[in-house]
Structure formats: C-alpha cells, structure tokens
Simulated scan of single mutants.
Amino acid sequence: MSFAAAIKDAFDVDSKLEIGKPSQFDVIVDGELIFSKQSAGRFPELQEVLDAMSKRRAG
C-alpha cells in the first residue's frame, strides 16, 4: 500500500506530493514537520508515519 493510500484509509484525508531537493523526504502535517529523512538518516516506515500522524491529531 502506498503512503497516500494508507493515509487516506486511516484518516480520510488526501495527501499531496511536493517536489523538494534531491533525496529529501519530509512528512508535514498541518504545517508541522513530523518526519525528516535528512534528520533521521533513513526513509520512514509507513506505520511510523501513521503513528506520528495519530499522535499529532490527538494533541
């Protein structure tokens, strides 16, 4: 399952892809950075992104 499909399924929201710098992968929710590939040094796991989004939405 793609990140976009999983986010749609879990939260009923549409995500969008924005082209950034080469090898950049950031996940931003409501203007807040919740994952940065550059900071972590790796690509995120899908469940990790979903968990961070759940936590962000819970407050």
Rank of each mutant, 00 (worst) to 15 (best):
Lys55Pro: 01
Asp9Arg: 15
Arg42Cys: 00
Ser54Asn: 15
Asp30Thr: 02
Glu45Asn: 14
Glu48His: 14
Ala58His: 07
Val49Gln: 06
Gly59Pro: 06
Phe25Ala: 00
Leu33Gly: 03
Gly31Leu: 02
Leu50Ile: 15
Ala40Asn: 13
Ala58Pro: 01
Glu18Val: 09
Arg56Gly: 02
Val27Gly: 02
Asp12Phe: 03
Ser54Phe: 10
Gln47Met: 12
Ser39Asp: 10
Val13Phe: 06
Lys16Ser: 01
Phe11Trp: 05
Asp12Ile: 01
Asp9Leu: 13
Phe35Gln: 07
Leu50Ala: 09
Gln47Thr: 14
Ile34Asn: 06
Ala10Val: 10
Asp26Phe: 02
Arg42Tyr: 10
Gly31Met: 02
Ala58Asn: 11
Gly59Lys: 14
Gly59Glu: 13
Ala5Phe: 10
Asp51Glu: 15
Ser15Trp: 05
Asp26Ala: 05
Met1Tyr: 12
Val13His: 02
Leu46Gln: 13
Glu32Gly: 05
Ser39Met: 12
Pro22Cys: 02
Ser39Tyr: 10
Phe43His: 11
Gly31Phe: 03
Asp51Cys: 07
Pro44Arg: 12
Ile28Ala: 01
Ser2Cys: 09
Ala4Gln: 12
Leu46Cys: 05
Glu48Tyr: 15
Ile19Asp: 03
Arg56Asp: 01
Glu32Arg: 15
Phe35Lys: 08
Phe35Met: 07
Ser23Tyr: 14
Val27Asp: 04
Met1Leu: 11
Glu18Thr: 05
Ile7Asp: 04
Ile7Gln: 00
Met1Val: 07
Ala52Gly: 02
Phe25Trp: 13
Asp51Lys: 14
Gly59Ile: 08
Glu32Met: 09
Phe35Tyr: 15
Lys8Leu: 07
Ser2Thr: 12
Val29Tyr: 11
Gly59Thr: 07
Gly59Arg: 13
Leu17Glu: 04
Ser23Asp: 10
Gly41Tyr: 15
Phe25Gln: 01
Phe11Val: 04
Ile7Lys: 03
Arg56Tyr: 08
Asp30Met: 01
Ala4Gly: 08
Val49Cys: 08
Leu17Arg: 09
Asp30Gly: 05
Glu18Asp: 05
Asp30Ile: 03
Gln38Leu: 12
Gln47Phe: 12
Ala58Phe: 07
Phe11Met: 04
Gly31Glu: 02
Val29Ser: 08
Ser2Trp: 10
Ile34His: 07
Lys16Glu: 00
Gly20Cys: 06
Glu45His: 15
Phe25Ser: 00
Gly59His: 10
Ser36Lys: 05
Gly59Asn: 09
Asp30Lys: 08
Ile34Trp: 06
Ser2Lys: 13
Asp14His: 04
Arg57Phe: 11
Glu32Asn: 13
Lys16Arg: 10
Phe35Thr: 03
Leu46Ser: 10
Glu45Ala: 15
Ile28Ser: 00
Gly59Met: 11
Asp9Cys: 12
Ala58Leu: 13
Leu33Glu: 05
Gln47Ser: 14
Ser2Asp: 14
Asp51Met: 07
Arg42Asn: 03
Asp26Leu: 08
Val27Arg: 01
Ser2Pro: 12
Phe11Tyr: 11
Lys8Tyr: 04
Gln38Asn: 11
Ala58Gln: 11
Val27Asn: 00
Gln47Asn: 14
Leu33Asn: 03
Ser2Ile: 10
Leu33Pro: 01
Ser36Cys: 05
Leu33Tyr: 03
Arg57Val: 01
Asp51Trp: 09
